[in-house]
Design a protein around this nucleic acid. Structure first.
Lengths: 324, 324
DNA sequence: GTGAAAGCGCTAACAG
DNA sequence: CTGTTAGCGCTTTCAC
């Protein structure tokens, strides 16, 4: 492996000059530049990122922590984040936490060790004290971590309202909402409350089913939905995450329900899976690309040491489908 | 930021002793160890990964290159790879190539620059010469790159055969298969050939529709399938990637087709999306977790400098669903 | 404009 | 068992 010294020696200049050429910085005479370039060519020199990292004490790597990479919501988010970061010269390290003992702690340690310059944290963590006194750039994605850490999220209150209004356009009497684990501290929890409140005021019965904090697999959702049908046989409206609503649609027939006449369904998130089935699922759509954009924007601001402006909740929209 | 020297000074030992304690290597007297640990505690010392990387000239980062992270097949693959790598003390850097100008070249350059210790390459690249003379650890995931680069893939020939047999159990006359771009050099192309051959021998008409090399979005598939229905109005069997078959199922009604009686569908890949719709899609299932396992196994073998054994094609299986 | 030199923070011989 | 020393490869003052 040729190093900057080898290039310097061959070009008969000092290493610092090679460095200048490499980084297109400062003034280098044309003649020196040519010599250096020729030498780099001849030695097929490739600068070492590790050395540069140590010297500059940054890696240009951002970590993204999510529960599950293959989940449509998080997968789409990571895809968008990676594209944004790439456009700004950063690399993306991914970390999934579900089904791993204390992965989140490990990832945060990497941040401390300066493996990454910052992290975007969107895992469903229960122990938030690992983020205390981090003193390094962290942006939360749809999670409340602590007062120091800025948070990027959609306007879930409005999401809850829009969903409620969708049901109100029809004559539902008993609606069940499937929600994430309450102990996961997330702004997403707000949509349940708004949703329930609006519908209750309209005289509709609203029951709530809570998922386990680590439920992400299709099988988890099937079970939840089966229990739901057993427990609330007269349910005529269900509101829940995309995959849960897919399960409802899938199991409805078995339970003798016809959609949308007997049972209306509205999904929350509105990822692509609500658009690839036989019927398009009516859904509240989170603006994932925008969320990714602002998360990246923010983490880079933090890395630069700026404060930046306070983040606004991003607008959600209704996808009118065949299920409500 | 406290460094190893600060710790050494405070503990009144040499930096090398601190290093030994840190890495639990060699013999260190209990008394020295205690002093070092106390000093580390007091300074809340955190070792710098960058310095260690430079010194050891490795990063413990593996890059995974795929076309699209949110795609169910690649998302599931990345998730599994990340978990495997995590278990072995490696970190996962993701790189998506679709809709980026020359991202693949950039990622390969990172490998050269030693940003990563190795890469698992699963993108749909057209220009393979960027992998010439790399001389660094690369494992191909379902792609032929060149003779030097080992490749992990499923047994697509058997996949083609099993799919053909599925159709043969019913009375199909005209089958269309939707295939990936032929110019993407992948063992996956083998399933088309076997499939076609077996069915042709049975006297069935088999037509082939080729997708663009960069088609991954649901919308891309809709268009392909619409064209297919227009061009082959008497088609009574379709074989194609999961998302394409989803589109078939979705559009069948519009074209007055009833599934499975009028039109039989078999998907290739068998990701979770074939199991979350109203009807389970009959599919050839690629063993994604196993593929991930072997890809990781292989890249680590290469990094260690071993040769390892030649990789075998991994068995695929039939998921009997409602569509064939 | 360019070179010498001092780091960045850690590891690894090699003496003692 | 422990300290000394010499790197790893690049960046960056600061003289000349």
């Amino acid at each position: 492996m040729a190093s900057i010294k080898d290039v310097a020696k061959l070009a008969k200049v000092a290493p610092s000059t090679v460095s200048l050429v490499l980084n297109q910085k400062g003034y280098v005479s044309d003649i020196s530049r040519k010599k250096v370039e020729a030498a780099m060519q001849e030695l097929s020199y490739i600068p070492s990122e590790m050395a540069r990292n140590l010297s500059l004490s940054r890696t240009n790597i951002i970590g993204v922590i999510v529960p599950e990479i293959s989940h449509p919501f998080f997968g789409t988010f990571i895809h968008a984040v990676e594209a944004e970061l790439y456009g700004r010269g950063y690399k993306t390290m991914v970390c999934s936490t579900v089904q791993k003992a204390n992965a989140e702690q490990d990832f945060v340690d990497m941040l401390r060790r300066r493996t990454m310059d910052g992290i975007i944290m969107g895992a469903h963590s229960l122990e938030l004290d690992i983020y205390d006194n981090i003193n390094r750039p962290v942006v939360a994605f749809d999670r409340f971590i602590n007062d120091e850490i800025p948070i990027v999220h959609a306007d879930h209150q409005s999401g809850g309202r829009i969903a409620a209004e969708a049901f109100l356009r029809h004559a539902c009497h008993h609606i069940v909402q499937i929600i994430g684990a309450r102990k996961v501290s997330s702004p997403a929890n707000e949509h349940h409350e708004v949703f329930k409140q609006i519908l209750c005021e309209a005289g509709i019965i609203v029951d709530t089913v809570e998922m386990a904090w680590n439920a992400f697999e299709p099988i988890d959702f099937s079970q939840i939905v089966e229990n739901l049908f057993m427990e609330y046989p007269d349910v005529d409206g269900i509101f829940g995450p995309d995959l849960a609503i897919c399960s409802c649609l899938r199991l409805a027939e078995q339970y003798g329900r016809h959609i949308p006449d007997d049972l209306r369904l509205v999904a929350y998130d509105g990822t692509y899976i609500t658009r690839i089935g036989v019927r398009t699922i009516t859904a509240i759509v989170q603006p994932i690309p925008l969320l990714a954009h602002f998360a990246v924007e923010k983490i880079i601001t933090l890395i630069r040491g700026d404060v930046g402006e306070k983040l606004q909740a991003l607008s959600v929209s209704l996808q009118q489908g065949d299920t409500c």
